[in-house]
């Protein structure tokens, strides 16, 4: 059976999450087609054709798909995808928004945020904030799946030469419209793609104190994240949240500053290669997962670290 992968893209280029999702498709096995739905998305489609392991790129270039509204794109995927055995999307906010609609239109279950492929119909996924890993088997003819991107190593973005073909009629549900976007403008790398992530927790005490972390991040070329406690307390916006209900990250280096290590936070970062924890409470659970723990007052340790780098 063939596999359809929904590309994460911005019309001009393919986002990294697509490469991890293609890796999950490879683990399932079969011909892999990538669907690029957008408006003026020819450049993204050309980039998709170069992805290693992709045999076909399907392009739906239409105003109705311009902002990838779930109401419209789901109708397209349900039409294009009905002949495939698997339909995959990365578990980004776009994938999570659109794919359950596709599953409902096809009257099949969705398997959310898989972290491992056991066989073509059996997958692992974390539940209960990552406290439990469930192995689930699907009995549906079409498996609709979102992929936790940090669990699959990205395939190469270059090397392939897939054929590109136009597909699908224009589906405009006519019930929703895009008004605007306010994207955080930052010279720092994106949280889910950064090599180094520095996160602050409740111990930061307020939003202003995060400037210490921003300074450190700029020195290291790192992204800055936060625990749910810091978001709940209003220190920083929710798009910085690392955890089961926020972003899942797996950088080479993760530095947790003033974070106690609630399970819901650990679920979002425990696959990081190296974890550093700075916390003044030596019993904080974060030290149980940290490769290097520093028991210290963060307001002394972080400036000192900044100076030492």
């Amino acid at each position: 059976m063939s596999i359809l992968v929904l590309a994460e893209h911005d019309n001009a280029s393919i986002k990294g999450a697509t490469l991890n999702t293609v890796a999950a498709a490879k683990a399932i096995g079969g011909d892999i087609a990538v669907l690029v739905a957008g408006e003026g998305c020819g450049a993204a489609a050309e980039a998709a054709a170069k992805i290693d392991g992709v045999s076909k790129v399907l392009v739906a270039d239409n105003a109705a798909y311009g902002h990838q509204l779930a109401e419209n794109v789901s109708l397209l995927i349900a039409e294009v995808g009905k002949d495939y055995g698997h339909i995959l999307a990365p578990a980004t906010t776009t994938g999570k928004n659109t794919l359950p609609r596709v599953a409902a239109l096809l009257d099949v279950a969705q398997i959310s945020e898989i972290t491992s492929v056991e066989s073509a119909d059996t997958f692992q996924r974390p539940i209960y904030a990552g406290n439990v890993i469930a192995t689930v088997q699907s009995s549906d003819a079409i498996k609709v799946i979102t992929v936790r991107t940090t669990a699959f190593d990205a395939v190469a973005a270059e090397g392939g030469s897939a054929a590109v073909e136009a597909v699908g009629a224009a589906h405009d549900a006519g019930t929703s419209s895009w008004v605007g976007e306010e994207l955080a403008k930052s010279d720092r790398p994106e949280l889910t793609a950064a090599d180094i992530v520095i996160s602050g927790g409740r111990g930061m005490q307020n939003g202003d104190n995060f400037s210490m972390l921003y300074a450190l991040a700029d020195k290291l070329g790192a992204a800055v994240g936060a625990s749910r406690a810091a978001v709940d307390a209003g220190f920083v916006p929710n798009d910085m949240q690392v955890g089961q209900t926020g972003k899942i990250v797996a950088p080479n280096l993760y530095v947790a500053v003033g974070i106690s290590g609630a399970i819901q936070h650990l679920a979002g970062m425990k696959d990081s290669k190296v974890i550093v924890a700075i916390n003044k409470d030596e019993d904080a659970p974060i030290f149980q997962v940290a490769d290097y723990g520093l028991v210290a007052d963060l307001f002394e340790a972080v400036p000192e670290l900044d100076k030492a780098l």
Binding site: V108, A109, I111, T122, P126, I127, G130, N131, V132, I133, A134, T135, V136, Q137, S138, S139, D140, K270, I275, V276, E282, F287, Q288, V289, A290, D291, Y292, G293, L294, V295, A296, A301, E304, L305, A308
Partner: peptide
């Protein structure tokens, strides 16, 4: 539509070491 075959605890990450100060870190 989905059958749960098994549930298990996640792979445990081993705790590392405590460093004495920022310089050692």
């Amino acid at each position: 539509r989905l059958k749960t075959l098994k549930v298990e605890p996640p792979a445990e990450r081993q705790a590392g070491i405590k460093v004495a100060d920022v310089a050692e870190l």
